[in-house]
Design a protein around this nucleic acid. Structure first.
Lengths: 321, 321
DNA sequence: TAGACTCGAGTAG
DNA sequence: ACTACTCGAGTCT
């Protein structure tokens, strides 16, 4: 019972207010993220107006053919699995079924359908963004702890692929931080890495803390380091989504992910400490999480939207042992 | 090793061809499902043209206010968590940030943004549809088995909420079938129900087979019947999605769901038979599934896109014991 | 009716 | 290249 703000299962449950805040922030952000999608649609429309006089003219527009596929309902993901011949057939069917019946309005029909597909794409992008924002929230809290405890640290910038000293840190760099390393008062080394593929489980783990440092976080030497289970201090799952309807769904996923880590480290006779941090926690799953916490299957847990729990967990992450 | 077409983990893996077929069917269906979303957008546009002269006029349009919220990026789901005041603020911000800067084009901007949100909604609808279609595929295969084996059955129509005799069955009723009941040659009763909330686990299970019949599948008597763990013959998870990228994600979910069933029946000293049926099975997860199959943690499994495996599993579902 | 189901739109290691 | 991560858009019980 390490986290003193998690005394009961119900402490973990997200409040309605937290959920509301999440959806509110989401809506505002989505409006902003829409802009490039709209710009693309408008540019696409202009090309269609200039270069086509009738639906079947789009078949000749090589430059915007992939946009036409999107209009026909093919996502970028689906596109990969279809052959050129499949795509051509879809497009022919699309022209015949939906564009030609629209008569003069075929460009409007095409653009409207393009926007439908774009909306789904935007939704996908937003989901990734929510995940990144959760990472960033955790990063800010961890760095705050390091600063408060006056522990100097280095952070790894994912673009320059270099470690920077804590004195260079500013809050606008948070999105680019892939890893953080520091040294405990006791002399122990710590290195936190996000979204690392852990060879022991052959899966990506949201949050990994190693008990050793490395200059690179790619390459052969690093690969060797992370292949040794005794170099791991802790692993964790972080779920930043706020939707209550997704809460149990994603906890089930996290639960299997954590089980895989536990089982695979156990093969090396290691009881690896695990944590779960989630923003959407409902009553029923809170009981399962708390039960795992009580029995030690997970070592710590927190609701990402409960300040005290998060701060306490970060303090512990930074200082443990 | 009940399913004679599942001899190795690799037998479970989905082929590229199956994935392609899935995405192809998906794209064609999506084009058709788009129509009502486009119609709504066009109707919305007409109202805006008739009743507004400038962006802030939309605030007075009570009839289409919820459509305006959607245009501002608020999904129906998000809407539920926001207060009227939140929504009003979002709309004001939306007008100021995105509609007013568009000048004369504010209606186009509004409709384009409405379509983006609609596209995400359509995506959600499509995901549900894929799930239903998988259910229907299973239903058709089960009924075919019953017919081939000359076992008379009754099927429960979810709208009329009544049981109909097998002689009334036609293939176009498949989408409305919630349950099927039949009697084994040995005299044993069987009743299959989809998406049943099982009191023993307090969760919905995709596929449930009981060893007893009931007149209703709601109400007190039925509730009592399904509260008795010894009335269960088998439970299963069915995953109809074809996307390889979602395969492991959804298997992790299914795995926790199956574990919950197993653990909760175990509390009543029952080793309940479990099955997993999935359309998107990748190599790594196929090994986990096959391993569970070998050790008896699951009793049967099949790839929904592999005809032999599915038929064999349905034969077994229909005739077991 | 609150709760938990459907699955793929993106992304990145 | 390949695998598996992000999470909420719907739906139904």
């Amino acid at each position: 019972m390490i986290n003193k703000y998690v005394k009961n299962a119900s402490d973990l449950v997200s409040t309605h207010e937290a959920t509301r805040n999440g959806f509110l922030e989401y809506a505002l952000r989505k409006s902003k993220e829409s802009v490039p999608y709209l710009d693309k649609a408008k540019a696409f429309k202009l090309i269609l107006e200039q270069k086509t006089k009738q639906p079947k003219d789009i078949l000749k527009l090589d430059e915007v053919l992939s946009s036409c596929y999107e209009a026909a309902g093919v996502s970028v993901k689906a596109n990969k699995y279809l052959t050129d011949s499949d795509l051509k057939d879809i497009l022919l069917e699309f022209i015949k079924e939906f564009l030609e019946p629209s008569g003069e309005q075929y460009i409007e029909e095409l653009i409207y359908r393009y926007l439908l597909t774009s909306g789904d794409a935007l939704g996908g992008r937003m989901r990734n963004l929510v995940g990144s924002i959760a990472n960033e929230k955790l990063t800010r809290n961890i760095i705050s702890q390091l600063q408060v405890l006056n522990i100097s640290f280095e952070y790894y910038d994912k673009f320059s692929k270099t470690w920077l000293a804590s004195k260079n840190y500013t809050i606008d760099q948070v999105p680019d931080i892939r890893a953080i390393k520091w040294i405990l008062k006791s002399g122990g080394k710590r290195q936190l890495i996000y979204n690392l593929t852990v060879p022991i489980v052959k899966k990506n783990i949201d949050l990994v803390i190693l008990n050793c440092h490395s200059e690179e976080i790619t390459g052969k030497a690093f690969k060797e380091m992370i292949s040794n289970p005794s170099n791991y201090e802790l692993l964790g799952e972080l779920k930043g989504g706020v939707d209550p309807a997704g809460a149990d769904e994603h906890w089930k996923t996290a639960n299997t992910a954590l089980s895989r880590v536990r089982d695979n480290f156990k093969k090396h006779d290691i009881d690896i400490p695990l944590v779960f941090i989630g923003a959407a926690i409902e009553i029923s799953m809170s009981k399962e999480i708390f039960s795992q916490y009580t029995t030690g299957q997970i070592t710590n847990c927190a609701n990402l939207t409960v300040e005290n729990q998060l701060v306490n967990l970060c303090y512990w992450l930074v200082t443990q042992r």
